[in-house]
């Protein structure tokens, strides 16, 4: 289908974009890479009166190192993240997850900020942001503020961004030495939306878990952190049996996995178990053994 008519503005500065966004007389959507919004427009699931395109604003797509933290502009494409040696070196989990998002033809346009602000429950980046304690730098009419990843994803397709705010940048804090990361997802076909996925980090000390983190996606309205199982792992010696137990508890502990034509809620519980175990095992295998 074709979209319903809308007006279009392509401001050249963040200030101008904020001014356009603040106009209460016209329902406005921000356009980033358009790889989620434009399908919604084409299917008329979204019918904004005006689009404000962020694509003509200089400087919103930078990928930079700031005192060890990795700062990525909201308009950086997934392709640029996938190809960034800095990302691969400093944030291997983010790098690995990027390769699972759709196809190169979509990653060429789709942006980090667009995925975060869209907050699809089956998307990879929100879960990675929660796993890595990312911080969201946003700007509104009264200035800038920072939102922790744990507070950013509110519910299905809903973030803590106010209607008059724009996401500028996402900061990924420097990772501790010796940390291993793992990522796993299960889709009908590579590049499809995941039916379930998991991102994990792990650190070992004297052969025992110093800490671990497991964040699932596709199994609830927002990324789900497996807090109680993370706690349980601390101080334990990694083993097949332990990981199987933890993964089973994660699957069983999900509140209400969604059911659709791709997977029933019960099947999603099983998938959650599988991806949790895979991601955790990958993380442990890569963690420094010292």
């Amino acid at each position: 289908m074709k979209p319903a008519p809308f007006e279009y503005e392509a401001p050249s500065s963040v200030e101008e974009a904020l001014r356009l966004l603040a106009d209460p007389a016209i329902e406005t959507s921000l356009l980033a890479g358009g790889q989620s919004l434009v399908p919604a427009l084409n299917m008329r699931l979204a019918r904004p009166e005006r689009l404000v395109d962020l694509g003509r604003i200089e400087g919103l797509d930078a990928i930079r190192d700031e005192n060890g933290a990795l700062c990525i502009g909201a308009m950086a494409t997934k392709r640029s993240i996938e190809r960034s040696a800095l990302v691969a070196q400093k944030q291997p989990l983010l790098h690995e997850a990027t390769g699972h998002i759709a196809h190169p033809q979509i990653r060429n346009r789709g942006t980090l900020g667009g995925s975060m602000a869209h907050a699809d429950p089956a998307a990879e980046y929100p879960a990675v942001a929660v796993a890595l304690d990312a911080e969201f730098r946003v700007i509104g009419p009264s200035g800038e503020r920072r939102i922790a990843a744990a507070d950013f994803f509110v519910t299905y397709l809903t973030t803590a961004l106010a209607e008059d705010e724009i996401l500028l940048e996402v900061t990924f804090p420097e990772r501790p030495a010796g940390e291993g990361v793992g990522f796993a997802e299960i889709c009908r076909r590579h590049g499809d939306f995941a039916m379930a996925g998991a991102a994990a980090t792990a650190r070992l000390e004297a052969g025992r878990y110093q800490d671990a983190r497991i964040v699932l996606f596709g199994v609830d309205a927002t990324p789900v952190r497996a807090l109680s199982q993370e706690e349980r792992l601390r101080g334990e010696v990694p083993s097949e049996a332990l990981h199987a137990e933890v993964a089973a508890a994660i699957g069983a502990g999900l509140e209400e996995p969604p059911g659709d034509q791709h997977a029933s809620p019960e099947f999603r519980r099983q998938l959650a178990r599988t991806v949790s175990k895979r991601a955790l095992e990958a993380a442990v295998a890569r963690a420094a053994k010292a």
């Binding site: 358009g34 434009v38 084409n42 395109d53 694509g55 979509i106 060429n108």
Partner: peptide, 19 residues
């Protein structure tokens, strides 16, 4: 609808002409 825009392959249906 894939075409190359400034060198990269993109979906021609997910990009507006004005972009």
């Amino acid at each position: 609808c894939t075409v190359r825009v400034d060198g990269v392959a993109v979906r021609g249906c997910l990009m507006l002409a004005v972009q």
